[in-house]
Amino acid sequence: MRQVLLIVDIQSTFSPPEWLVDGVRALSATIPTIASLQLHDEQVTPFERQLGWHPAAEDECLVEADKVFVKQGYRQTAETIEYIRGLGAERVLVCGLQTETCVLAAGFALFDEGLMPTLITDLTVGSSLDRSGKMGIELWKHHFGNVITRAQVLAEGCV
Rank of each mutant, 00 (worst) to 15 (best):
S36F: 03
S36V: 03
S36D: 06
L37Q: 08
Q38C: 14
Q38L: 13
Q38M: 12
L39S: 04
H40R: 14
H40S: 14
H40Q: 13
H40F: 13
H40L: 14
D41H: 11
D41R: 15
D41T: 10
D41M: 08
E42R: 06
E42N: 10
E42H: 07
E42L: 01
Q43D: 14
Q43P: 04
Q43H: 13
V44C: 02
V44D: 00
P46V: 08
F47S: 05
E48T: 15
Q50A: 11
Q50V: 15
L51K: 13
L51R: 13
L51V: 05
L51A: 09
L51F: 14
W53N: 07
H54L: 12
P55K: 00
P55A: 03
P55Y: 01
A56D: 11
A56R: 12
A56Q: 11
A57V: 15
E58C: 03
E58K: 12
D59F: 06
D59Y: 04
D59P: 11
E60P: 05
E60A: 14
C61N: 12
L62P: 00
L62V: 06
E64R: 15
D66C: 04
D66K: 01
K67M: 11
K67L: 10
K67G: 02
V68K: 02
V68W: 01
F69D: 04
V70P: 04
K71D: 08
K71F: 03
G73P: 09
Y74C: 12
R75S: 14
R75C: 12
R75K: 13
Q76N: 13
T77D: 04
A78M: 12
E82R: 13
Y83W: 13
Y83A: 09
Y83Q: 09
I84F: 00
I84Y: 00
R85D: 03
G86H: 07
G88M: 06
A89E: 06
A89H: 07
E90W: 09
E90F: 07
E90S: 12
R91S: 03
V92Y: 00
L93R: 01
L93I: 05
L93Q: 06
V94Y: 02
V94N: 08
V94G: 01
V94P: 02
C95E: 11
C95Q: 03
C95W: 02
G96F: 00
Q98M: 15
T101W: 15
T101A: 14
C102S: 12
C102H: 05
V103G: 00
V103H: 00
V103K: 05
V103N: 02
A105Y: 13
A106G: 04
A106I: 07
G107K: 11
G107V: 09
